[in-house]
Amino acid sequence: MVDPALVLSSVVTALLVGCIYGVLTLGLNIVFGVLRIVNVGFGAFVMLGAYITYFLYKDYGVNPLLTIPVSFAIGFALGYAMYYAAFRRLVGAPELSTLLATFAVGVLIQELARIAWSPDIRGFTWDIGVLELAGVRIVYSKVVAALSALAVVAGVYYLFTRTRFGLAVRAVVQDPEGAMVVGINVDRIYAVSMALGIGVTVAGGSILAIYLQQGIEPYMGIPYTLLAFVIAVMAGLGSILGSLYAGILFGFFEAASFLAFSMIKDALGLDILPYVLTRSAAFFLLLLTLLLKPEGLFRR
């Protein structure tokens, strides 16, 4: 009844898109994990990355892959500036303040983008070929996007677990006052972590743009905010590799529920939209995780 090629293709898509989800979630998770700030404006930074890739490729012919480090650098600078401009005062502030502040920054960036670049939906084509495997078409640019996502996750993982900076970050997370008395500039660790988190998010936006190549508009990031929250909760808030694992897991969940809803639709002749239902199923997954394993699935 189920076409094997369709299943195989779903598995491949789940894996590829899962890596993208993973890197996006990582951006959210770094900021939360170190500063305990939930970045509700997350989607705006994803959008920013997508536009950077779009303009650099379309207007200047820059290889889309090279736009990823550019986005990271811009995001890093933006995050650093944001920390000293506003968020420095919000570390340890009541959640409502940080939620409102990040929400406000997100809205600001989105509206500026709409004014600067118009609300038109844009897209580009970066065609580097297609791999045909057992009747499944795998688009190379999507593979490249997924591999870039893995590279970013690996880089962040290395930074946080194998370097002295990472050791200092872990010290700050575990005991900020202890970190102060050993001479760590806690303020700077927060600033750099925020910069890294936003940098990864904007770079993630570029990776997402390479993956999708379509649908680039000022509000495109909003659904990813929701998605990244669900995945971050599954990952365990603050967990680096967990973000990737949960992203991939979520990719599979999405593919499976999409297949299931499609089959239900066909079998029962119901007038439903499988993709929309998949999105609501994500919230069911969120509730389930919070109920059964609130500390996350991938947390040591």
């Binding site: 050791l167 872990r170 010290a171 575990q174 005991d175 006052e177 202890g178 970190a179 102060m180 008395v181 050993v182 001479g183 760590i184 500039n185 806690v186 303020d187």
Partner: peptide, 23 residues
Amino acid sequence: PPHRKVAMGMTLVPEGRRLFPEL
């Protein structure tokens, strides 16, 4: 700030020890 003072040769063993428990 404290980190500058540590660099100058002052340090504190704080109340509650303030170790990094997971390290």
